[in-house]
Amino acid sequence: MRDKPLVALAIVVVLAAIAVGYAVGRRKAPPPPSPAAETTTAYSPADNAGAPPASGQIDAIRRGIPVDQEGEPPLMARVENTDVKRNRAYPMQPPTIPHSIDNYQIDRNSNRCLLCHARANADKFQAPPVSVTHYMDRDDQFLATISPRRYFCNQCHVVQTDAKPLVANNFKDIDTILSGQIDQPQQKAN
């Protein structure tokens, strides 16, 4: 065979390439995960109360529990039924509902909310009647009855539960911002 040395050379080159690749890859690879590190981040059943996982990632469905483990469901949150109105964060916010609404029927046949919140029933149930915006269509015309786009109250109004918030919220309402501005020296005069 005339090209025997050529084949031998090719084999040597390939082997060398493999050796170099192996060495480089080894140096760059992160250290293999140690079992100890894994258990510290893993889910422990004691603190399953819905606290956000420490990694900062929101995992509302599995709450950081590894997929091969069965987690204990957190206690179900209860609807706050205190009948005490809450503050609105801004003037146009639909107020949150301060009472429970379990099994209230809202469909074509009947609207349980309007039993109490209709204009005509305010005296009987001592509930605040829906405001005038609920009678306006999208051209700002006033209708005689509740506007169809306001019929399904839960689109905008929701109950609150005692569940812990999953993400922090640093919303500041306008009053806070205004008072903050007064404290600071005015930057621009006008």
């Binding site: 029927q105 469909d107 074509r108 046949n109 009947s110 349980r112 039993l115 109490c116 149930f125």
Partner: peptide, 15 residues
């Protein structure tokens, strides 16, 4: 309507 769904309630006094 405490136990079943209500029929069309237009014109029927509730409460």
């Amino acid at each position: 309507g405490i136990a079943h769904h209500l029929p069309d309630m237009t014109g029927i006094p509730q409460g």
